[in-house]
Simulated assay, not measured.
Amino acid sequence: MVTKTALVTGSTSGIGRATALRLARDGVRVVVSGRDAERGREVVEKIRAEGGKAQFVAADLHDERSAAELAARATEIAESAGEPLGILVNNAATGAGGPTAGTEESIFDAVLATNLKAPFYLVANLAPAMAARGSGTIINVSTLAAARALPGLSVYGASKAALDLLTKSWAAEFGPDGVRVNSVSPGPTRTPGAEAGLGEALKQLAAQAPLGFVADPEDIAAAIAFLASDEARFITGTIMDVNGGRTVV
């Protein structure tokens, strides 16, 4: 029986898509969100075909207003179903690679807007209601590049490192009211964006870790689903590495 609703940003492909499908299979109603309506409908149709419940909301997260509008729409969907919006997965992200010198200001601003500003204002709009109810969980999707200096990923890594700090700050801020906040930090993962941006370097990066293989999006979704579940009720403020052991070598 569905007892709560989750908003998963950037859930029309990759890790977000896998997370939406996994949460739906776990009995959660899912608000699928992203920029591509066609891909969003495909995810919703797949969830419904498997017996789950989902609805798509188009969103291009880049500022306070877009985050507030998505938060309001997701809350409306949850309330119309008589359920709390109890899970927020901040997965939507913009990647950027290349040397520091020559990085255009527009790229810098776009990365920070999507990867940091949008999650900040989604939490600002949704966490207070969770706190008022005395329960809720927020999972931020980070990256190996937030903890390991990877050449060419300075802006992207910095945006996610800041998000990891917000994870800890929010855990301290909202924890006394029953809201848990954690990050999942994936290593090399076989997503359309990673494969397009890194190509063969994806395998080379994965080979540096003890397990030595590229993860599937479902591997990351499993960790997110665990942190969203009641089985993780005593876990908050944690950065969970899901990277094949890359941070131990």
Rank of each mutant, 00 (worst) to 15 (best):
T5G: 11
T5C: 07
A6T: 13
V8D: 08
A18W: 08
A18I: 15
A24P: 03
R25P: 03
D26V: 02
D26Y: 01
V28Y: 09
V28K: 08
V30W: 13
V31G: 11
G34T: 00
R41V: 00
V43P: 00
K46Y: 10
I47C: 04
I47Q: 10
A49F: 00
E50W: 01
G52H: 01
K53M: 13
V57Q: 14
A67N: 00
A67D: 00
A68L: 04
L70H: 14
A72H: 06
T75Y: 14
E79I: 08
A81S: 14
A81P: 04
A93T: 01
T94I: 06
G95V: 04
A96F: 00
G97H: 10
E104M: 07
S106H: 14
D109L: 01
A110L: 10
L112H: 15
K117E: 11
F120M: 11
Y121H: 10
A124Q: 15
N125K: 13
P128N: 02
A129L: 11
A131Y: 07
A132T: 10
G136N: 06
V141F: 06
V141N: 11
T143A: 12
T143I: 07
L150C: 02
G152H: 12
L153D: 02
L153S: 05
K168L: 14
W170P: 00
E173R: 06
E173T: 12
R180D: 03
R180W: 08
R180S: 09
S185M: 06
P186Y: 14
R190I: 06
G197A: 07
E200F: 12
A201Y: 01
F213D: 04
V214D: 05
D216T: 08
D216P: 01
E218I: 15
D219L: 06
A223Q: 07
A228L: 13
S229W: 05
D230V: 15
E231K: 12
R233P: 01
I239Q: 06
G244D: 02
T247D: 04
